[in-house]
Design a protein around this nucleic acid. Structure first.
Lengths: 118, 118
DNA sequence: CAGGATCCTAGTAGATACTG
DNA sequence: CAGTATCTACTAGGATCCTG
């Protein structure tokens, strides 16, 4: 039987909201799930600061539509920060927020688990 | 900048396979992603051993199709164990494998992160 | 009771062309 | 350069009915 017990001796439960979207796990999947977001997160984390065009070249196979949509969603979710420099031509740089950086160690554990068990 | 450095002083990277499905992170999402699997995992983890019909009642809104498919996939992925008792009528019980239990602590961290940050 | 078989829908993702 | 705007395609997911 997995899962730690909490202070009241009850077992901590993975998902306590089997109907709606209130469960923490489902919220996380909502913001980093999908086909591209972890890859984008990955590249930004590795590079620190990345331009739009660099992302498109780095994330193999992604289209403008998906890259732009994903970035916008992740920005709204507070995971990436967008900085626009009004030069000519325009330059836009993306970086991770501290919120995103705080989830990276957990994702690394998950990655390690996947490599060892799958 | 997030991510630990490894022994060679290189940064550990979230996803090193930006094209295929080789990245550990993507493998994990492949087996616990989707709409129902974490919920099913949750119920089994909470109950220890669950019958098919109990699962269908516990996981609010799931259909036979999705429950059966998800269970089969998770069985193939080595996450759940299926035990069939040839009584009359048939009884089938599902439980988590040790492999699945080993990922639960990480999922709990992710859940906690989601609750605190989303 | 515990599913399987079918058919169908909807949301996600892709291709292509265009713009501030 | 860094995106939008459309349109199309695909597939995960759903409804319903059936069976060992």
């Amino acid at each position: 039987m997995a899962g730690k017990k909490n202070s009241k001796g009850e077992k901590e439960v993975l998902c306590d909201d089997l109907a709606g979207e209130g469960c923490g796990l489902k919220k996380v999947l909502n913001i980093v799930g999908g086909k591209w977001k972890i890859m984008i997160l990955c590249v930004i984390d590795k590079e620190g600061t990345v331009r739009y065009g660099d992302l498109r070249r780095s994330v193999y196979g992604i289209t403008n539509t998906m890259l732009a949509n994903s970035l916008k969603e992740m920005e709204n979710d507070g995971l990436v920060e967008r900085k626009q420099y009004d030069e000519m031509p325009v330059r836009v740089e993306y970086s991770l927020t501290s919120k995103a950086e705080s989830i990276v160690p957990i994702l690394l554990q998950l990655k390690k688990w996947g490599e060892e068990n799958l």
